[in-house]
Each structure stands twice: as structure tokens, then as C-alpha cells.
Design a protein around this nucleic acid. Structure first.
Lengths: 393, 393
DNA sequence: GGTATTAGTTCTACCTCGAAAGTATTAGTG
DNA sequence: CACTAATACTTTCGAGGTAGAACTAATACC
């Protein structure tokens, strides 16, 4: 059965606000929306009707309030009425997913990169997009997340993993696949996902820290992702954690890279045990009680705790979300994280809320898909550009 | 001549936005306001008229654009149509000012505190208010800034300098002076001043750092002051600056208190020179080329630079405003600050904009007055409460 | 079964806004 | 010095969105 693909672009103003409220906060009653958006009940009847008629929203049954009163009729988006592709591009390959309107993953695929030559990469991406779009009836837009600096027009200004500078990836990929493309920094994308569909939903202020090959950081303040030109630089990578730690390639002693990254941890455990140990194995050993591994892992976790304390002290977030491929560190050494947090956090201050994501690599792709999704539903000129641009000077 | 005191509370919505635009951005033309607020020219004629008729705004002459076209007629608030009192309360005394609608200081007065007993303090404050309000025809509201934790209802939850916990200062002072009173943390007040009338005007994101008896920090993100429950705790005071530094009373090594405060600097110079040296004298000596003083001062300045770098890396501000009684450190040792900044700041990142305020103690009062001013013009229930409360969960 | 409570609809009066056309005032240009 | 282009402001009018009141609907509780 072919599902209609209603248009988001034909709704503006308050009607769009209502649709977004439903998109983000799941099935929700008119009355609830009226309260959240500070509108009258009558307005909600009026606003909801065309949204339902256009197929954008549907009524999905009733919900008796539990207390007195007429049960509410829940509104929901038709999650599968549109699909988006999200791709995470790294130095070795690209991982892509197809998601629905709720950023839920429908399909997944990946491709290796034979070369880092822009044309070769774009060809590989186009191939990946082709494979992915075959799995659904129609794809509305494509989001691409990259570790590096990306301009608002989709140009990759600097991408160390790919050894790229100034490649107009967005326009070229768009021409190749004939779909709207949004290119952005991978951490911005990850953070946007958390803001709309993840643990940061409806929060005014939260921070994101990712563990993996590098250390990533994203910040939401005033309900919007902080989009500074510096956001893509990975400034947190050289955050000083241990004044007695090892030197990094840039000459910093004990910075985040030398203590928190997967390679730092697996390297330190390998050295302690005089044999090659993978990151995952290092965590397994620490879990199993190996003293040397435990020391390394706890040391890293304490450092992470101190880093989180620094973030909390300066940005006062309501939540800190931990993600990335290496996030299993958190479950293996949470007490050490809390210890590090305690070292740098005033006991009178509110306890820092921590939330750990799965660490699945597809999370990066989901983030990229959210950028495409946002560009579509917010009516940002869907071809190129960022989801929610910084309006600051 | 008696100046009329037009009411701000009778205007709402877009009309209030227009009035605020004029209040904050000085004399400004209708056309300019229309552009900033994204309104049509016709709307501005309509909106401005009742504001002018009610006496809230006036036309203050023309400004020929320099290029072609009809010159614009500038709108301005009647700055002296209302006055506010702002008071900074410390452990030894209270300093108060009277300001106009533009937060410009009109009068200044202070009083010592004979006792820290709440009733005695309130009596002294009432006396100070009485003295200050005599200098103008009418005072609209009073703002009170306190170093400590203040609840939204004006209750002082914790004020170490006064050895207070849970004193309903706002309500009691309000009863004593029969004027609306706003009580808030002094750094929130300082930051609000900078946001509306100081260097942070129209900025989306900036940070404030104050030097003095302690180290203060305030953050604006998304155009609003970050109002967390933790904001009044002075979390930055124990920020680790030098892993080899002296121990603070809480057992932290080299935290901000032990390196950046006035007493830390004067103490270190005194020790080096084996004689008692004041903070001001210490800076004079460093300026004059005294090697020992220069070492201490530069060390502190480098630490400050590293702190600013940390703030910049995590919050990506468009500007960092430096204030407080001890801010002369900045002019005496700016190169060292830049050096410290460079140590912790990626060279690819944007240069951190620094702005130094005068360091005058009246700045704290002006901030407190701004809170009263905001409560009045924003129509926040003027009795008690914060100017712009955090709407977050 | 009656009452209170909550959800949603319909209708109307009102308010605000923008669009368009018109007036006012300047700079530049031949 | 007229003419044009540019910019500021005003007036008028119509379109659209909103709250509010009166209404129907459906539940829980007594």
C-alpha cells in the first residue's frame, strides 16, 4: 500500500508549531498541545483540522485521563509518511540509514571508501544513497554528518579524517543523487537528534559528550544547539584532564585525547599487560577484575568525570548525554566517573544528570537524518544549509 | 518641573517589544525597529503612536541617513521618567545607587552594617533606601544584589558573607519601605546589566567573569541569562587553575580562589617582598617593573587566561566581559592573559573577544537596579521575583 | 442517575498584521 | 534647477489568527 506523503511546507506559523509539537512529543491530545503552546481550545480545533485533512496528522485513538472528564483523542504524525537518509562519513567508509519522520531507523547499509578523492567519495556516497533509497518508496532528503568544519552552504571547510579542505560536498552530492542534501558537523547532528528525539527532548539546556576515536562535545542552550564557527573544531579534544598524564601530539600533557579515547585506553592497557588489547577487550578485562585494566579504565573514567564536572560548572546543564562508540566505558566505570565528578563539583550543587546512549554507530547516522528531517519540516530552504542556523552576529 | 511617569504595564505584546527595542538600543528610527523586529512599516506607525501618546517614547529629532532618502525621525525613551534603586549588599555594608530607565547612575550612597542580624540589616537598608529616594521625585522599584543563593520569591536561601540561611529578605524589606523589591544573586544582576545596557547588548551568547574578593561567573546563552539553581553558588571559585598551586581552605590545589582573588595576589606579593602589600599596590609594583610582583601578577593573569579559555571552549561565547573590583589585573597583565588563553585555546578557533568594565563598585548596584527595572518594564509581577525567570524544567 | 470534570466544537467579535498606495524629504545627476 | 532614485513614514483596507462564550461529548465519582 502506498502511503501518501503529505507536505510540511504548506503549513506555517502556529499550525506548524502544532505539527512540531506532535512530531516531537509523540501522540498527544489537543488539550495538551493547547496548554503547552498557550493557545485556546478553540484554536486547537481550528489548527488541527487542516493538518489532519492534509494527512500530516492522524487521530490515533483515545486515552482516558484516569481521572474524571472526557477522554482525549490523541493526535500523532504519520511516522512512515516520509523517509530520510542519514549518513556518517569517516575516513574509511560511510554508514547510512533510512529513518522515518520520528528518526527511527528503517534500513541500514554501509560502504567502504576506496579512496579519499572527493569524486570517488561522492560516487561511493551516491551508490550508498541509491542502495538505501531502494528500501523505501520515497526519500525526502539526505543528511550527511562529517567530523570537521562545515559551512552553512554545505561546503566542507576542513575535514582532517578525509584530508579535505574546501570541498563543496553538498552541492556535488545533490547534483549526483538529485535529492536535497544537508551537510553538517557530526556532533551538531548528534546533538540535534538528542534535542528533538533523544534524551534532551524539551530541555532548555543540556550537553553531549561522545567517546570514541576522539572526544566530542555539543551544547544546547536556550533550547537551541549552539552553532558557533568553533563548534566543529573539536575543542574539547585537548581539554586538560591530568597534569601528570602523557603528552599528546600537540604537546599537551594529559589532555582528553591521551586519556579518554579508545586508543588511549586500549594502548595503556596493552602496555600494562605487554600484549595487544582492543578497547572492548580492555573494558572486558576491567569488568572481569583485572587490576591493571581496572586502573587504566578507572583513571580514564575519573578524567571523564572531571571533564563532565567542568562542563556542568560552566554550562549548568539539566542533563549530560554520553554517547559515541566508546561509551561502554560509562557502564564499566560509572563509580569512577562519579568520583571524578565529585572531585570538581561543589557538593551543594545539583547532582549532574547523566544519560548514556547505546553507543551504536547508527546513532551518528540518525543524527544526520534528523538534520535532513528538520530542514524539511521547518521549511528551511531544503537544499543545503543547516537545520537551525545561529541567528547571532 | 515634574516629569510624568508613563506606565509600562499598560502595553503588551508587540508594542512592548517596540518599547524595549527603543529602551535597549537607544534613539532609533521606526524603520530600523521594523527591520529588527521583522515588522512592516505600517505596523510601526500604528505601534509607535500610542507609545508616544502615553509618554513612554518621544521623538528626539531627525537623523539624515548620509545617503539618499528622507531622514528618519528617532524614537527614544524618556530616560528620566522613572528611577530605580539598586543596592549591593555585602557583609560589611551596603552600597546603593539611583538610576534612570537607562540604568545610568543618578545618585549614590552607602551605609555600613553594624550587625548582620537580619532585622538590623533590613533597617539599615530601609534607611539607605530612604536616603536615596529623597534625591529623585519618585522611585519605581528597588533591586537588591547579594552574593549567595536567592530563591525566586526573594528569600535568601544562603548568604555566606552575611551568615544567613533562609531569610525572607524581599518581603520584609518590601514591607519596610513600601516599594516593590527584587532580590537576586549579584552575578545574575551584573550579567543582566551587561545583557541589556552593557557590552553584551544584542549578543546571543556571552560570559561574564568578575575578579575581586571572589571569582564570579555568569553566562548568557540564547539571549537569556542562564538561571540555574547552581548559578548562585560561585562554582567557578574552585576552578582548578594550577595543579602545582597552593591549597585552598576546601583542599583544592591551585583553584581560582588561591590564585586570582585580590587577597591571593596581594598575599603572594606580600610574602615575596616580606611586607604587607595591598592589591592595588601589588598591581602598581608589577606595573612599575618590580620582578617579584610581576611574577605573581603574571601568574594570576595566565591562570585567568586559562580559565577564560576553558569558558570559551565549552560555551563558545561571542564575548567575555571582565569586571569586578579587581579587574585592573586585566590592564596590568593583558599579555599574560592572552598567553594563558593561547595555552588552552586551539589556534584555529576564533579569537576570544575580551571586554573590560571599569571595576567600579557601583557596577554591582547598577546590575541590581536593572533587575528592578526589568521587573517593571517587562510587567513581571513587580513585587519580588526574578527579572526573566528560567522557563526550563 | 446526578454532578463534577475534562475534551473538543462552533461561532463570533476583535485585534493585529501586511500589502499597497500615497506623502514627505533627502541625495545625486545631467 | 528639475528630475530621478532612495528612504521614511502614514493611511487605508482586507486577510488571518485568536480568545471567549456557549455548546456538545464522554468519562469518574457519589
Amino acid at each position: 500500500m502506498r502511503i501518501a506523503t503529505p507536505s510540511w511546507t504548506s503549513h506555517h506559523g502556529t499550525a506548524l508549531d502544532v505539527a512540531l509539537e506532535v512530531l516531537i512529543n509523540g501522540p498527544v491530545s489537543r488539550a495538551q498541545i493547547a496548554r503547552t503552546l498557550d493557545l485556546s481550545a478553540g484554536s486547537l480545533t481550528r489548527l488541527a483540522q487542516p493538518l489532519i485533512e492534509s494527512g500530516l496528522l492522524t487521530e490515533v485513538g483515545e486515552q482516558s485521563s484516569g481521572h474524571a472528564g472526557r477522554p482525549s483523542r490523541l493526535l500523532d504524525v504519520v511516522a512512515d509518511s516520509r523517509h530520510f537518509i542519514g549518513i556518517k562519513l569517516t575516513g574509511d567508509g560511510a554508514l547510512g540509514v533510512v529513518t522515518n519522520l520520528r528518526a527511527q531507523v528503517v534500513t541500514q547499509a554501509n560502504t567502504p571508501l576506496e579512496s579519499r578523492e572527493p569524486s570517488a567519495v561522492i560516487a561511493a556516497l551516491a551508490q550508498l544513497v541509491g542502495e538505501l533509497r531502494a528500501s523505501v518508496q520515497e526519500v525526502t532528503a539526505v543528511g550527511l554528518g562529517i567530523g570537521g568544519l562545515v559551512a552553512a552552504d554545505g561546503t566542507v571547510l576542513e575535514a582532517p579524517f578525509l584530508e579535505w579542505t574546501n570541498i563543496d560536498l553538498g552541492a556535488r552530492l545533490e547534483a549526483a543523487i538529485r535529492l536535497p542534501v544537508v551537510v553538517a558537523n557530526d556532533l551538531i547532528a548528534f546533538t540535534e537528534y538528542e534535542r528533538w528525539f533523544g534524551g534532551g527532548r524539551n530541555l532548555e539546556r543540556f550537553a553531549v559528550v561522545t567517546l570514541g576515536a576522539g572526544i566530542g562535545y555539543g551544547l544546547v542552550a536556550g533550547g537551541l544547539v549552539v552553532q558557533s564557527d568553533d563548534a566543529g573544531l573539536g575543542l574539547i579534544g585537548h581539554w586538560p584532564i591530568d597534569p601528570y598524564g602523557p603528552l599528546c601530539e600537540a604537546g599537551h600533557r594529559g589532555c582528553a585525547r591521551t586519556i579518554l579515547t579508545q586508543s588511549a585506553i586500549s594502548g595503556a592497557v596493552s602496555e600494562a599487560l605487554s600484549r595487544d588489547v582492543s578497547y572492548s577487550e580492555a573494558l572486558d578485562l576491567a569488568s572481569a577484575g583485572d587490576a591493571a585494566a581496572r586502573t587504566v579504565v578507572d583513571n580514564a573514567a575519573r578524567g571523564l568525570g572531571r571533564l563532565i564536572a567542568a562542563i556542568a560548572n560552566l554550562t549548568m546543564p539539566q542533563l549530560v548525554i554520553l554517547g559515541g562508540e566508546g561509551v561502554r566505558l560509562v557502564s564499566v566505570a560509572e563509580p569512577a566517573i562519579r568520583q571524578g565528578l565529585g572531585e570538581r563539583r561543589d557538593p551543594r550543587a545539583a547532582e549532574v544528570g547523566l544519560l548514556t546512549t547505546s553507543g551504536d554507530n547508527a546513532e551518528w547516522c540518525r543524527g544526520a537524518a534528523v538534520l535532513a528531517l528538520q530542514a524539511h519540516v521547518l521549511g528551511t530552504d531544503a537544499s543545503l544549509g543547516n537545520g537551525s542556523p545561529d541567528t547571532s552576529a
